[in-house]
Design a binder for these strands. Sequence first.
DNA 1: TCATATTGCGCAATCGTTTGTTCTATTATA
DNA 2: TATAATAGAACAAACGATTGCGCAATATGA
Lengths: 347, 347
Amino acid sequence: MAQNKQITLDNIASAVGVSCSTVSRVLTGQSKKYRISDKTRELVQETARELGYFPDQLARGLRTKRTNTIGLIIPDISNPFFSTIARNIEIQARKTGCSTVLSDSQEDTQLEIESVQLLQSRKVDGLIICPVGEEHSHLERIISSGLPLVIVDRYFKNLDCAFVVSDNYQGAVEAVEYFFSMNHRSIGYIQGRVNTSVNIERIRGFRDAYSKQGIPVDESLIVGDSFGKRNGYIGAKMLLSKSPRPTAIFAASNLISLGAMSAIQEEGLKIPEDISIISFDEQPYSEYLATPMTTVAQQTSETGEIAFKLLHAQIHQDGEQSKEGIVLPTELVFRKSVKKLNHPTSE
Amino acid sequence: MAQNKQITLDNIASAVGVSCSTVSRVLTGQSKKYRISDKTRELVQETARELGYFPDQLARGLRTKRTNTIGLIIPDISNPFFSTIARNIEIQARKTGCSTVLSDSQEDTQLEIESVQLLQSRKVDGLIICPVGEEHSHLERIISSGLPLVIVDRYFKNLDCAFVVSDNYQGAVEAVEYFFSMNHRSIGYIQGRVNTSVNIERIRGFRDAYSKQGIPVDESLIVGDSFGKRNGYIGAKMLLSKSPRPTAIFAASNLISLGAMSAIQEEGLKIPEDISIISFDEQPYSEYLATPMTTVAQQTSETGEIAFKLLHAQIHQDGEQSKEGIVLPTELVFRKSVKKLNHPTSE
DNA sequence: TCATATTGCGCAATCGTTTGTTCTATTATA
DNA sequence: TATAATAGAACAAACGATTGCGCAATATGA
């Protein structure tokens, strides 16, 4: 089965008996502007339909310097947190006729950098990135090259760039305050990747909540170094081996809490009888877990939607660009994983 | 900040003092073939590096008719089942320098068809599609246009196209046989979208397992019509209202089983004491559910990897294409959601 | 009737690469 | 020394679409 020949503007032009510029103008809806007669316009449109013409986006992009394509770089698209964001970006993008080129950076800064290169050489109109690490010189380069960029989930203080993130600080504060209200005073925190804004903000919230109560933070109860499941397991193991044992665990991600649950189970402990837990990231399964999980829900759908809208705004305004930063509130979802202690206690 | 000027072959050419064809040949590694002198070659390479040149993939694609880009159409990228497949496709693709344009068809055939159009006009080298519905005339059109295509998760009997799917038949057979071995005889099946190969094969397995035991299938125990959570809830409600109540439920997807769990909980029933359940789709959280779930695991990572490899093979062989169909085995993962009944019984 | 507007459309350059062909030195061969 | 062979690189035509400019033909106005 031979590759079907592509229909070009010239094909239509010669079929109708006009020049290809006329066809182009009709098909891009500029017939009024260039005063193409109605008769010609209709003839061209009909012929194009008959021949099954659709424009070559490469040629168009080469000429117009606009591809209607955005690049999306995500650390792990199989993580529901990111895939929900990705979905909503794609849905918004397609609404404006924009295609999304997806790149999974596999939590690897080097791959992220290479992806940026590749996407730039594909002439995307803009980039949405969930950055992996602390390194961001490549992001600076994007910005100074003038390519529209929105970063998501994480941000960098000294980077003049639009972003959309959750209010990680407030989310952490509320979780810890809830623990306090249930009389917990010894709370372990299993953190994610250090030096990411996400982690820094959550830790700050954690600390501030303690301060407000006038209670010092036990630094040895802050453990962990990544958002993955394995780190959750290891972190929980460490926390549970302490004596006195903390009465509660605050897990910085959905995967961390799954790992922690393994550890808790291994130690023969029950949630919340023996240990309470709150996890960042609401998930469809959160309510169905052995103990329905109290979570800090982030607005993932909205994050994606807003990210695209910010990017779209940047792309379509040629004047000064407002590098907006959007912070979305979190919501504490109350379930069964936190036990009310009789007395304010550390054990 | 003005858009930085793009470096072109001509820029390099005039900087070095050669023609742009020479530069092109050097940079595409054809310097031997066209006997470019070592001196020129090195000079060109160095200058290209200094200027920070990287090729314009649009222009290249326009000229060569190869974009090193594939299109991927998925019904719901936020579903972990699909996002895991997508991830592995993307990872394989990038290994060969290929970019992936993602499209979420939102379980809508019309959007799927439009996506195909759009991706074709972007000149992708091939397409991987998880088709939504029964309609597949647009897939036939792709094939007869000569564009490489691999379909994933579902297939169509009378479509000559490479595909990779799970062994849904055998997966269902094993699940039902396990139910039988635990003395269940009255098993409700909450199916997914009817008329999809996935559903048809699972139903066939369900029936055949019954036949082998010489037991007739109670048709009223087959309910449902989509792979979503809501359908799981409704389906379970229906099954649980029957009297006698089935002793077991076989859920056709991870979302269906989540929905079913809601219904079961609402009815005040316990898994597995009051009702046993097996779910298609292994998930990271399966073992942490209120009752750790016995599941039929599919090889999602492998599915993605193989899908890309089949596509890659099609793209790179210009001769006759082997439209291979790959069927991957499933695995029954035993946990706690199935109770052993004392006697073969329907109640 | 003649000058001027206006209508309707074509010409040709351009975007950045690739690639078949040609062209000019230089070297090898007889 | 004359001729052929070869090395090294330039020319120019694509690829398909867009767009500034120009040019006829017709319509309008005086």
